[in-house]
Amino acid sequence: MKKLGLATALLLAMTGAQAYQVEVQGQSEYIDTTANDKDFTGGLQGTYYLKDVDSSKGPLAEAAFLNQASNVSVAYTYGEDGQEFGDRTVHHTFGVKGEAYIPTQVVPAYASASYSHTIADNKAGNPDGNGDRYALELGAFAAPNFLVAVGYTSVADQTALDAFNVMANGVVKSVGETATIGQDQDAITARTKYVGAIDGTNMAIGFESGLVYGDDTAYNLGTTLFVTPKLSVGASYAESSFAGTPDSAWGANVNYFITPAVAVGASYVNANAEQLALDTQTVGVNAKFRF
């Protein structure tokens, strides 16, 4: 009976269950830079929603946001950088995060807290690095499906990355953001997010923006067109005033839900450095599984 129940649950997930409570995501990026050789990353994230998420309305990719679904997540990312036969370092980042959507008499409120720890394992015999990163965020829905949030981030060591930023936005943006915060260690963040239907169609549009203010300043902009509830295409742009990273980067992505429970996607980022040999291109793939 246990085997039959497991098989039934798997079949429902694969063929189109309209509600889910767990999401597992995996991703990997190949990185081509003028400074390093054959870099790549990989990562896994698991999210548990406190209540079932209804994915029957709106874009499948944004079901949790549209449902204002409180959740807890864990993530792990792996990355390598450095010359193939030189000073090569392997990075392991572990993270835990909680998001809460809170109904109030005025507008829905939002809060999140996260912690990430990075271990930088140097393969050339140089000292290893360890770093912690904490983030808090508070926000509210200024209009239906329109979130405005501000936050505080503490990066105790510049080794530390945000595991969830790597999973959501890729390694170029994540590394650039950490470098932008710099030795200041503390940073103020702000972001907005909106998802809305396009009248008279089954399409929807999404917009996101973000700002990080530390030793230097970085911002990012993104838009996504949900051609159907299953298919989306997006574009993004990011810029940093810190001279030690690429000055700007643009990206494109596409994601498709094979069923309401299984999705695959691909991404591309092109980052340009004006003063240093840090031009970078990344190609990424990802997959999601919901049940």
Rank of each mutant, 00 (worst) to 15 (best):
E23A: 05
E23L: 06
E23S: 04
V24P: 06
V24R: 00
V24M: 06
Q25M: 12
Q25F: 10
Q25Y: 07
Q25C: 10
Q25A: 15
Q25L: 12
G26R: 01
G26H: 02
G26F: 04
Q27H: 09
Q27F: 00
Q27E: 11
Q27W: 00
S28K: 10
S28Q: 11
E29W: 07
E29P: 09
E29V: 09
E29T: 06
Y30R: 01
Y30H: 04
I31Y: 08
I31H: 07
D32Q: 08
D32A: 08
D32W: 05
D32V: 04
D32R: 05
T33Q: 06
T33Y: 05
T33L: 01
T34K: 10
T34C: 01
T34S: 12
T34L: 07
T34I: 02
A35P: 05
A35I: 11
A35G: 09
N36S: 14
N36K: 08
N36E: 12
N36D: 14
D37P: 14
D37C: 11
D37T: 15
D39E: 13
D39G: 10
D39A: 07
D39W: 02
T41H: 07
G42L: 12
G42I: 12
G42A: 15
G42P: 09
G42T: 13
G42C: 13
G43I: 08
G43H: 07
G43N: 08
L44Y: 10
L44N: 08
L44P: 08
L44T: 10
Q45R: 13
Q45D: 09
Q45K: 12
Q45S: 14
Q45M: 14
G46A: 13
T47E: 04
T47S: 09
T47Y: 01
T47D: 03
T47N: 02
Y48H: 05
Y48T: 03
Y48G: 03
Y49D: 01
L50M: 08
L50K: 01
L50R: 03
L50D: 06
K51N: 15
D52L: 15
D52Q: 14
D52M: 13
D52I: 10
V53T: 02
V53E: 00
V53I: 03
D54M: 07
D54R: 03
S55H: 03
S55N: 11
S55V: 11
S55L: 09
S55A: 15
S56H: 05
S56T: 11
K57I: 14
K57L: 13
K57V: 15
K57G: 05
G58D: 06
G58C: 04
P59H: 03
P59K: 02
P59L: 00
L60Y: 06
L60D: 05
A61S: 11
A61L: 06
A61G: 07
A61W: 04
A61Q: 08
